[in-house]
Simulated scan of single mutants.
Amino acid sequence: MTAEVVAPRPTSSVRDYLRLGKFDVYDYYLGILIVASAAPAEPVTLLLFLLGEVAVIVAGVAFDDVTGYRDGSDLVNYGPDDRLRKKLRKPLVAGTLTESQALRFAWGAAAIGAALWTAAVLTAPHRPMWSVVLLVVVFAAALQYSYGLKLSYRGFQEAFLVVLGMTLVLAPHGLITGEFSGFVLVQAVLFGMGPLMFGVYSNTNDVDGDRAVGRPTVAALTTERGNARFIGALSVGEFLLGALASVTGVAPWWFALLVLPATALRARQYHLGFAVGDIMRARKLGFTAHRTCVALLVLANVLVAIG
């Protein structure tokens, strides 16, 4: 009688869940520094909001991994033919977590995020309706980004990346000050552009996998030249937003000059991606450009505060 061979179950660890939640990619969380530099200190509310956004984003990326594993796109983008992408960053593809483990983790993080954001609203000195509604909408959209309604599979991926970043600045600022600020709106858009600008380079690299599963990113829908023009337009538009804000008085006159180092990095990123043809190095430089921009936005708020 032949003994039945049972396939070994994945041996999960804390590290696998950290990889599933992409805890090493902290760029969305930097928005809280912009809020803290632009508004009076409210440490309890800010801390609750920050912890809540970590949980919500972790839930969103975990759901994204589940969907990418189910439809096979992650198997293509992180498979043996792509040596630039580390398979261990995708625990489901690597086989270190099961789908049910990933789903339990994602739903648990979502519940924690909802509780923490509710606590942030309750402890805030102000509760403008627009801030609360924005939080509710973005919370729901984050969970439906690649799961459930699959918003990113319906043409909303690029817009969502910007709106999420904007919300993580605008909503807590509204809760702390009770006001809407044009200058903070400009900063929120620039902050949201950061994740978008390394997202579109990722999409450029992942175009074959996205096309195979019908995920309509701009890179998947257009030609290589059309995608390059789209990313070029985004890069120029980012600079023009700051320049227009300075010219119109929404931002201080020196604001566009202050953020020029980030603009230079963005130009370097585009050159790397589409002149040199090294998309993944360009994507990596996008993180540096975003973090530089955040530092400059914080500096701008400090300069405004001291007059």
Rank of each mutant, 00 (worst) to 15 (best):
A106F: 07
A106V: 11
A106G: 09
W107P: 03
W107S: 10
W107N: 03
W107M: 03
G108A: 07
G108V: 02
G108R: 07
G108E: 06
A109R: 04
A109N: 14
A109C: 14
A109H: 09
A110Q: 09
A110N: 09
A110P: 04
A111I: 00
A111M: 12
A111T: 01
A111D: 03
A111R: 00
A111N: 00
A111F: 02
A111W: 00
I112K: 00
I112L: 15
G113R: 06
G113S: 12
G113P: 14
G113C: 12
A114N: 03
A114K: 00
A114L: 15
A115R: 00
A115T: 03
A115G: 05
A115H: 02
A115L: 12
L116W: 02
L116E: 01
L116G: 02
W117A: 06
W117G: 12
W117M: 14
W117S: 09
T118W: 06
A119E: 00
A119L: 11
A119Q: 03
A119R: 10
A120R: 12
A120D: 14
A120I: 15
A120M: 09
A120H: 13
A120N: 13
V121E: 01
V121W: 05
V121H: 02
V121P: 05
V121L: 07
L122R: 07
L122K: 05
L122Y: 02
L122A: 12
L122G: 01
T123S: 14
A124M: 06
A124N: 08
A124H: 13
A124I: 15
P125Y: 08
P125N: 08
P125M: 10
H126V: 00
H126R: 15
H126P: 11
H126E: 11
H126K: 14
R127E: 11
R127F: 05
P128W: 13
P128Y: 11
M129A: 14
M129L: 15
M129E: 09
M129Q: 09
W130S: 13
S131P: 05
S131L: 01
S131A: 15
S131M: 07
S131K: 08
S131F: 02
V132D: 08
V132C: 05
V132I: 13
V132G: 05
V132M: 07
V133R: 04
V133S: 09
V133A: 11
V133Y: 14
L134K: 04
L134G: 13
L134C: 13
L134I: 01
L134D: 07
L134F: 07
L135D: 04
L135A: 07
V136E: 13
V136P: 10
V136D: 10
V137R: 12
V137P: 13
V137F: 15
V137G: 09
V138Y: 05
V138W: 01
A140M: 06
A140Q: 03
A140F: 02
A140I: 02
A141D: 06
A141K: 02
A142W: 01
A142T: 11
A142I: 01
A142M: 08
A142S: 15
L143N: 13
L143C: 08
Q144M: 15
Q144V: 00
Q144K: 08
Q144L: 14
Q144N: 15
Y145D: 04
Y145S: 03
Y145H: 10
Y145R: 03
Y145V: 01
S146I: 14
Y147N: 10
Y147V: 00
Y147E: 10
Y147T: 00
Y147A: 11
G148S: 08
G148Q: 12
G148M: 08
L149Y: 08
L149M: 08
L149G: 02
